[in-house]
Amino acid sequence: MASTILEVRGLKKSFEVKNGIFGKKKYLHAVNGLNFSVYEGETFSLVGESGCGKSTAGRLISRLIDPTAGEIWIDGEEISKWKESQLQAIRKKVQMVFQDPYASLNPRMKIRDIIAEPLVIHTKLTKKEKQRLVSEMLEVVGLNEYQGNCYAHEFSGGQRQRIGIGRALIMKPKLIIADEPVSALDVSVQSQILNLLKDLQEEFNLTYVFISHDLSVVEHISDHIGVMYLGSIVEYGPKEQIFTNPLHPYTKALLSSVPIPDPTVKREKIILKGDIPNPVNPPSGCKFHTRCPDVMEICKGKDPSLKQIHTDNHLAACHLYEKTIKNQSVIV
């Protein structure tokens, strides 16, 4: 197996939530003990619904926000406690692609300058060298040379996402964290960007951490998947395992909820009851027990941990599988 490029251990982040002027301080545990590894050259997806902490996880890994606890290993270095000045080195290796291609580009800068920005920050290249690299990058992401002199608002959503990708690639990073990079795009454009991401991964041997709520997109692009619910990963495994043999009841429900664009497919849908609980006041025990169709007594009191089930590298956090495991070992 390829070497590990990113490893996350016990990663936690809680935000303070103020409850009125005299209210008690409360904490929103956005990310609650994440563990996973990402191998070089693969795409690891974090998938889940709103409030599950997937975006927070992405911002923690890129150290845009400080973790409350836990470790982040990038390329063999533990960076979770690094100061901003130390992080410069990491910021070259790890780049981000954002969800909203309209908001993530400075409206007052020319595309050429937007793409060149990382070069300005990290290198001492001459203006000419920078321009040459930018022109190359424009071509790589499928834009024309002369478009570099335009402003962001002159482009369509798909083109803007190409610009965002170009900016992320110009430092030749190893790891790209893409936070919902296609969810703001129309389907026909979305497929262009997904194809582009795949091509670039091959060409530059990139590793992606792909954050998305869209399971069909995730299935298309990922190698490994972590399904998140209320701040924790409830199931982790290779793509094929997750989609053909989902273990956690939440993963099952999530998969069956996705509308399939084929009217001949008739499935029995698992429709979950109720809403996603408020992360400030998460349920006791297994956080999914309030909506789980297979809920048992134990689920209400004890939070199950992520354990290996059946095959290698396919893990789930669910009491349903407690008995079937002989060697209870915590992995990932």
Binding site: R91, Q95, S104, N106
Partner: peptide, 22 residues
């Protein structure tokens, strides 16, 4: 709070540069 400022931070831009440029 805009995303493009966050993007600049993720690229490693210094605070002075973020203030002055973005």
């Amino acid at each position: 709070e805009t995303v493009f400022v966050e993007a600049a931070r993720s690229m490693g831009a210094k605070k002075t540069r973020i203030i002055y440029k973005h």
